[in-house]
Design a protein around this nucleic acid. Structure first.
Lengths: 141, 141
DNA sequence: CGGCATCCCCCAGGATACTG
DNA sequence: CAGTATCCTGGGGGATGCCG
C-alpha cells in the first residue's frame, strides 16, 4: 500500500529551507483547501451536525465512495473533521466538523451568496460574449 | 482556432432542456470560478486598479503567458473583467475588474483571512497526523 | 456499513515557438 | 507589448471489485 497514486493533492511542500514557517501566500492555501471537487461539499454537508459515511455519500451528488474516503482522510489529516467510530456491528462512523472547519464554512457561505447574487448577470454576459459576431471566423474547412 | 482543446473549462453546458435558467447549486458555480489555478489570483492582482497584461504576468508568480491569456478571456466572458485596448504602438491593454468581480474579491478575502488564522493549527494537525505511528505518512511527493 | 486497492481516462495547464 | 498555435504530461478522479 501507501504508493497509490491519487490523494486529493497530498504532497509534501518542496521543504522550505529550514524551520521556515513556510509560505505565507494564503491564496494557494485556500485553493488547496477549496479547489478540490469535494472538500467543501463535505464541509457543507457536515455543517448541520455529525453525519455518517453513507449519509454523506447520499448527500453529495455524484461523489464516489473512493473520493469520499480520500477527501475525508485529507480533511481529518488537516484537523478539519473528526472521525468517531462506534465499534458496533455493523460499524458506525460519524464525522464532525471542528471549529476551524465551521469557520471555513461560514466564510465560504459568502462566496455562495455572491454566486447566487450574480448568477443571472454572469449567465447573460456569457451569452452575449458567445454570440458576439466579432470572432468566430468560421474558417476554411 | 476556436476549438483548441484547453481553455479554463470553457465548455458549453450539456444544453439544459430548453431555456432553463440552469442549475441552482451555487457550490459548483463557486468552484468553477475559484478552483482554477489562476482565476482568483488574477482578480486579486487586478483588485487595486486597472492593470496591464505584462504587469499581471509579473505579479502572478508562476503563471504562463498562455494561461494568463486563457484565464483573462474566461473572466472577460463572464463579465468579471473588462479589456481595454489602446491602439498605440506598441499596443497597450489594460484589464479592469467589474463590480461583480470586486464583490467576489471581497468575499474571497474572508477565505484568505481564514487561512491565515488557521495556518498554524492546520500545519500542526497535519504533522501530528503524519507522525501518529498508526499509519505511515501519506505519500511523499 | 465503511472502507482499501487497481486500472484507466481525461483535460488543466506547462513548455515552446511564431506573429501583428 | 500582447497575444496565438501545438504538443505533451501529470495527477485528479471515475469505475469496479474485494474485505472485516
Amino acid at each position: 500500500m501507501s504508493r497509490s497514486n491519487t490523494g486529493v493533492t497530498v504532497e509534501r511542500e518542496p521543504a522550505a529551507p529550514i524551520g521556515e514557517p513556510a509560505a505565507p501566500c494564503p491564496v494557494r492555501e485556500v485553493l488547496e483547501r477549496v479547489s478540490g471537487k469535494w472538500s467543501i461539499q463535505i464541509v457543507i454537508a457536515a455543517a448541520p451536525g455529525p453525519i455518517r459515511f453513507t449519509e454523506l455519500e447520499r448527500a453529495i451528488e455524484g461523489i464516489s465512495r473512493r473520493m469520499l474516503t480520500l477527501t475525508l482522510r485529507s480533511l481529518e489529516r488537516d484537523g478539519l473533521i473528526e472521525r468517531t467510530v462506534y465499534p458496533t456491528v455493523p460499524p458506525k462512523v460519524v464525522y464532525t466538523l471542528t471549529d476551524p472547519a465551521r469557520e471555513l464554512y461560514e466564510s465560504f457561505l459568502q462566496l455562495m451568496e455572491w454566486a447566487e447574487r450574480n448568477r443571472a448577470q454572469i449567465t447573460q454576459a456569457r451569452r452575449r460574449y458567445d454570440t458576439e459576431a466579432t470572432r468566430e471566423p468560421l474558417p476554411v474547412s
